[in-house]
Design a binder for these strands. Structure first.
Lengths: 233, 233
DNA sequence: TGATCGGTTATGTCTATACATATTGTGTGG
DNA sequence: CCACACAATATGTATAGACATAACCGATCA
């Protein structure tokens, strides 16, 4: 547990947050304005401003000019996940990570993929499949498409040594991402590689990545049976 | 698309972010210090500080006293979801929301639930089941347990009118939550209520809620076949 | 009645300045 | 050559003061 360093704006923030969480100030209630709070806490308005601004960012209050600051009526329920690289995730759990490159081929872009990536022109895709292992157990099956029109270097990369995820992070470290999560039934391929039965329910993550508005890659990650993705808010 | 209002710190932030995303400054690179940036942008150091601090919060850079500010080597991949109340979610998609309360009973806490909620003492739980509909179609099956030791009022609440989620938000608007997502196979009950086949893969969300360190409720939400949870980062 | 125009108010941002604090690097003495 | 003290440095926080801006509210006028 990291105990945050004391500082005036943190004290103000924690004090106000406590009043909200404990219900002293209920949803919809107007809280004192910044000048009053600054006087009450004996600090500058800028200090109160930072405290209350952060509470607004975190979804505790809503602020409006002239109208003042109110406790949110419908508190924001946000879930945030850190998405680690699969190798790091497995290593962090104390297991040995192994990556098996199954194969790659250059294909013309399937229709469904063009729709998903928002591509209008024709072009080639590099298609890769791989399995990620934790110790001796298959952990995740990866099926990836890389847009060769945007990333021609991918054709020359050697994905038997470095996984496509690592290679992509190295090549374009900052990108925009759309992720979606769902459930799917194991087909022949998944059942074989993840060592489960045909039709078993599997947790599925899909991710499309853009770099400067250009679609780069789409990946479909099927997790081992029973996998859970967890977060604490 | 919301075009953010122009302001100096936003300009600084966007300019720096662009340099990072475009690769002008690569991972690990040291960026100019606040005084230099302030001079370059012709603004006060506090303005630069806010810009860079927000970039650090968003995972673009790492800051250390005396050592300076560096572009993150392993950019944080975060996925954030807004978790709406199911009724609002369905209404937002333009469908008609309907809620069907199936039943409720008071039970002693099962062993698995005590483990999950971190309860050591014995006590009663209110167990509820319900189905949420979008138009005529079942959307989500809800199985919920409410800790009566922490929330005795729940025993008197009428959950045929107001869904347990709404009731809980009203009762304890601000709480801590642990969520997890996985895939499961439809059992008899789920197949019946969600109108799918036995064994169909379903997307599952589980949520445990605490209020001031006290466990309040655990809920298991099974979504209609094919459901996807999507987010854009 | 109703639309419009200012004035008032609370938040939003910015500045200049100051001191605190973590961390690095340097130099000194053993 | 190492340990330790100390200076240098970049970020972290706080201050008072100022002006900007959105939004509410009442007054004025068609």
């Amino acid at each position: 547990m990291v105990e945050p360093v004391k500082s005036a704006f943190r004290t103000v923030k924690e004090t106000l947050k406590h009043k909200i969480v404990a219900g002293d100030w209920g949803p919809g209630d107007l809280i004192p304005n910044e000048v009053e709070l600054a006087a009450a806490f004996g600090c500058a308005r800028a200090t109160v401003n930072r405290a209350v601004r952060e509470l607004a960012d975190e979804g505790y209050v809503e602020r409006k000019r002239k109208a003042g600051t109110r406790v949110r009526t419908a508190p924001l329920r946000r879930a945030a996940f850190e998405i680690p690289v699969v190798g790091d995730e497995i290593a962090a759990r104390g297991s040995v990570y192994r990556y098996e490159h199954l194969g790659q081929q250059t294909l013309s872009t399937p229709r469904w993929l063009k729709a998903r990536m928002g591509l209008d022109h024709h072009g080639k895709m590099l298609h890769l499949t791989a399995v990620h292992y934790a110790d001796a157990n298959p952990y995740q099956f990866e099926a990836r498409w890389i847009n060769l029109a945007a990333l021609p270097q991918a054709a020359e990369a050697d994905f038997s040594l470095m996984g496509p995820t690592e290679w992509l992070i190295k090549t374009i470290p900052f990108s925009n991402v759309e992720m979606s999560f769902s459930a799917t039934a194991a087909d022949e391929e998944l059942a074989h590689h993840l060592v489960c039965r045909l039709g078993d329910p599997l947790f599925l993550a899909e991710r499309t990545t853009w770099w400067q508005a250009e679609p780069i890659t789409y990946v479909r990650l099927a997790f081992q049976r029973g996998h859970k993705m967890t977060t604490r808010v």
